[in-house]
Nucleic acid binder design. Structure first.
Length: 626
RNA sequence: GACCUCGUAGCUCAGCUGGAUAGAGCAACUGCCUUCUAAGCAGUAGGUCACAGGUUCGAAUCCUGUCGGGGUCGCCA
C-alpha cells in the first residue's frame, strides 16, 4: 500500500489530461499542520502550462483527483497549495492490515554485504566520550542496515601496536612495580595510567632542555638534532618573522627535543625490538594488551554493542605493500629519487600523497589500503563503511581515490561515515589537559542520575533491588544513547559535564516511558479486541498517529541511506508524542464502543511495537514497567 | 596561505533535494492526576535563521562575498 505513490500517479495523469504537460518528478509534501489535509501539491511550477492563476489551477487538479481517485476524500486550495485529504478508511484499513505484523517496516533482504567498522580504539588508553559517539553510531547504523535487508558484518580494527603502546609498556616496566588489573584497576585504565606516567616523565625530562633551547642554548640535546634546532632557533629569534611562524618553530623545537630525548629513544628502541620479535617485549605487549581487551570488553558489554570480526593492526600493518608494488608497475604510483613512493591526485583536486616511506615501510594509508583489500577478500563486500571522525575527511578522500585508481571493484562501495567531534563547553576534549570524559565514569554517572530521578518520582515501589538496578542501568543508557544519537552525525555536538543529561522531554526515557505505559494498558485490556473490527471514523489524534506509523518504512529507508540514526530518534519522538496525545485526550480501556476500543488498542499495540523497534535500532533496551 | 565544515529562540537541537505564518526539548510562567503510569498532556512567552548581495513567482535552504567558530593541509595514527 503506497498512498503517496498512487496519489503521485493520479496527479501526473491529471496534469497530462488537463494541460498536456508533465513534471520530471511529482513532488508531494505532508500538509502543514495548520491546514486541513494530508498531502499537499504545490502548483506554482505549472502556471505556465495551465495559463491560469494558482487558485484556479489547484482547484482544477483537485476536481480531477476527487473524481478519478478512490483514495481522495476531499481537497482545499490555499493560494497555490492544493491540500488533499485522504479518505479515512485508507487509514483504518492500514491499521487493520499492519497493526500486528511483526515484520512491519522491515525490508526483505537484498543480501547486499556491508561491513561497518567502528570503535577501532588504540590500546594505550581507556575509552572516552568521543569513542562513545563513534561506538553508538556504528552499532546503530549496523542495526539499521540489517533492518533494511543488508547482510551486515560489524568490525573492529584495533590499533594494538605502535609507539603509543610502547610508551605505556615502558612506563609500566619502569614504574609499575608489577601492578596488574587484579589489584582492582580496570585493564584499559591501567594502560592509560602508565601512558600518562610516561608523558609526565617525558615532560620532566625535557622541560629544562626545551626551556634552554628556546633561548638558544642546546646543551643536553642530541648532537644529531642540533643543526636543525639552530635553524629553527634562527627563525624564532628573527624579529622580522611573524608571530605565527615563530609559534610553529617553537612547537617544532619542542617536538624535536621530545622525540630525541633519552626516554623517547628508549621507546623507539622498544618498538624496533617489537618489530624484530624480541620475546620479552612481545610478552609484555601481549600481557598489557590482554588487560586492555578485558577492560574494553566490560565497557562494550555495558554499552550493549558487539562485533562480528576483529582486525588487529599488528597483523595488518604490513599489508598494502604488495598492492603498492602492483600499483607501481601499473603506473598508478611513482617512485621519487629518495626511494619513497607517491601518488599524484592533483587531477582529483587533491595533492600528492606518500604511500611508502623511503626506507620501504608502511604509513597509515598503506595499512588502510591493505585492510580494505583484506576486508574485501574476507567477505566479498558490496559496501564498506568506516565510522571515523571528521578530522580524517581528507584521509578517506585520498584512500577511496587510491582504491579507484587501483581499479578495485569495491572502491565505489566505500563510505566514510564522518561524524563531528563531541565538544565540551571549554572546547575540544584534550587528554593532555585532563578534560576527557571517561566512558566508564560517564556510564556510572548515568546510572546514578537514573536512580536519583526515579527515586525523586517515587517510582521504586514494588521492585526488588536487582530489578531496580537493571532499570537504572537501562534508563541511564537510554538517556545517554538518545542524547548522542539524536544529533545529526555530521555535526559536532556539545556535552556539558556539569549538567546531567535530561530524562524528560525529547529523550530516551520519554520514549521508553511511552512504551511502558502502553504495555501497562495492554496488560489490562483483556482479550477480544484483537479480533474486533476497527472503527471507520477516526479522531484527529488517532489519524495523526497512524500517519506517523505509516511513515516508518520510509524513515527507516532514509536512515539507512543517510547512515543517520538521528532520523530514527526523530521518528520515535514524533510517534511517542502523537500517541501520548491520544492517551491524554481519549480513553482506551474505558471506551464503551467496541470498534473504537479495538481501534485504540490496536494503535497502541502497533505504536508499542514500532517504538520498541526504533529503540532497539538505537541500541536502547525497552522496559515493560518504569 | 590553501581547502573542508559549521553559524537557526537564553541553552541543546530539528528543518536545508527551494514552498504556506521557521519547529521541538530544556530553562521561565499558567492550567490538567478520587478513569487506563503526570519521566505525561494542554497553553503563554521567547527569532534580524551570523551579515551583505545575487538567482526567482517564492530563499533558513541554492550561488558569491564578509565576519566568527571548528577541522585538515606529517615520511604521526
Amino acid at each position: 500500500m503506497k498512498i503517496e505513490q498512487a496519489l503521485k500517479e493520479k496527479i501526473a495523469s491529471a496534469l497530462l489530461e488537463l494541460y498536456q504537460t508533465s513534471l520530471p518528478v511529482v513532488k508531494l509534501e505532508k500538509t502543514n499542520a495548520d491546514f486541513e489535509g494530508d498531502y499537499t501539491f504545490v502548483v506554482f511550477p505549472l502556471l505556465r502550462a495551465s495559463r491560469k492563476n494558482p487558485e484556479q489551477t489547484a482547484a482544477e487538479i483537485g476536481e480531477k483527483l476527487a473524481l478519478s481517485a478512490e483514495l481522495v476524500h476531499s481537497f482545499n486550495v490555499v493560494k497555490g497549495f492544493l491540500n488533499i485529504v485522504i479518505r479515512e478508511n485508507i487509514w483504518s484499513e492500514f491499521l487493520q492490515k499492519e497493526w500486528n505484523n511483526p515484520a512491519y517496516a522491515l525490508s526483505p533482504g537484498t543480501g547486499k554485504k556491508v561491513m561497518v567498522e567502528y570503535s577501532s580504539p588504540n590500546t594505550n588508553k581507556p575509552l572516552h566520550l568521543g569513542h562513545i559517539r563513534n561506538i553508538l553510531l556504528g552499532y546503530s547504523v549496523a542495526e539499521i542496515m540489517k533492518a533494511t535487508g543488508y547482510a551486515v558484518t560489524k568490525a573492529n580494527l584495533v590499533n594494538d601496536r605502535g609507539i603509543h603502546i610502547c610508551k605505556s609498556m615502558l612506563a609500566w616496566q619502569r614504574f609499575g612495580n608489577g601492578e596488574t588489573p587484579e589489584n582492582g584497576i580496570k585493564g584499559d585504565h591501567l594502560a592509560g595510567k602508565y601512558y600518562v606516567i610516561f608523558e609526565n616523565a617525558l615532560r620532566a625530562e625535557t622541560e629544562e632542555v626545551i626551556k634552554a633551547a628556546l633561548s638558544g642554548d642546546f646543551t643536553g640535546t642530541d648532537a644529531a638534532i642540533q643543526p636543525k634546532l639552530a635553524e629553527l632557533y634562527a627563525i624564532l629569534s628573527n624579529p622580522e618573522n611573524k608571530e605565527e611562524k615563530k609559534e610553529k618553530a617553537r612547537d617544532e623545537i619542542k617536538e624535536t627535543i621530545r622525540n630525541h630525548s633519552p626516554l623517547m629513544q628508549e621507546c623507539q628502541e622498544m618498538l624496533r625490538q617489537w618489530e624484530a620479535g624480541n620475546p620479552d617485549v612481545l610478552h609484555l605487549w601481549k600481557t598489557m594488551n590482554g588487560w586492555v581487551y578485558d577492560g574494553f570488553d566490560v565497557t562494550y558489554k555495558r554499552l550493549g554493542v558487539d562485533f562480528d570480526k576483529w582486525y588487529y593492526e599488528s597483523n595488518t600493518y604490513t599489508l598494502g605493500k604488495d598492492i603498492i608494488e602492483e600499483g607501481l608497475s601499473a603506473g598508478v604510483f611513482y617512485r621519487r629519487d629518495d626511494g619513497s613512493v607517491w601518488i599524484d591526485l592533483t587531477a582529483e583536486g587533491l595533492d600528492h600523497k606518500l604511500v611508502l616511506r623511503k626506507d620501504g615501510t608502511s604509513v597509515y594509508i598503506t595499512q588502510d589500503i591493505g585492510t580494505a583489500e583484506l576486508k574485501y577478500r574476507d567477505y566479498g563486500l558490496d559496501q564498506s563503511i568506516y565510522v571515523v571522525g571528521n578530522e580524517q575527511d581528507y584521509h578517506f578522500k585520498v584512500l577511496f581515490q587510491i582504491m579507484r585508481r587501483l581499479g578495485r571493484p569495491y572502491a565505489e562501495g566505500m563510505h566514510h561515515l564522518s561524524y563531528g567531534m563531541v565538544d565540551l563547553p571549554s572546547g575540544k576534549m584534550k587528554s593532555r589537559e585532563g578534560t576527557v570524559v571517561d566512558a566508564d565514569d560517564l556510564l556510572d554517572e548515568m546510572h546514578a542520575t537514573a536512580r536519583e530521578k526515579t527515586i525523586e518520582l517515587g517510582k521504586t515501589e514494588g521492585l526488588e533491588e536487582a530489578a531496580l538496578n537493571e532499570l537504572f542501568e537501562k534508563l541511564g543508557l537510554a538517556a545517554l544513547k538518545f542524547f548522542i544519537l539524536k544529533v545529526d552525525p555530521k555535526k559536532r555536538m556539545l556535552f556539558n559535564p556539569s549538567e546531567s543529561i535530561d530524562f524528560q522531554g525529547d529523550t530516551g526515557p520519554f520514549v521508553m516511558y511511552t512504551y511502558a505505559r502502553i504495555q501497562s494498558v495492554l496488560r489490562q485490556a483483556g482479550e477480544g479486541w484483537q479480533s474486533a473490527p476497527v472503527a471507520g471514523e477516526l479522531h484527529t489524534t488517532e489519524k495523526e498517529t497512524l500517519e506517523c506509523l505509516y511513515a516508518f518504512p520510509e524513515v527507516l529507508h532514509n536512515a539507512a541511506r543517510d547512515l543517520s540514526p538521528a532520523l530514527i530518534c526523530q521518528y520515535a519522538l514524533d510517534l511517542a508524542k502523537a500517541f501520548n496525545r491520544i492517551y491524554s485526550e481519549l480513553s482506551l480501556l474505558h471506551e464503551t464502543d467496541p470498534a473504537r476500543r479495538a481501534t485504540r488498542l490496536k494503535i497502541a499495540s502497533f505504536t508499542a511495537q514500532s517504538l520498541k523497534m526504533s529503540m532497539n535500532l538505537l541500541g536502547i533496551k525497552e522496559v515493560e514497567r518504569m
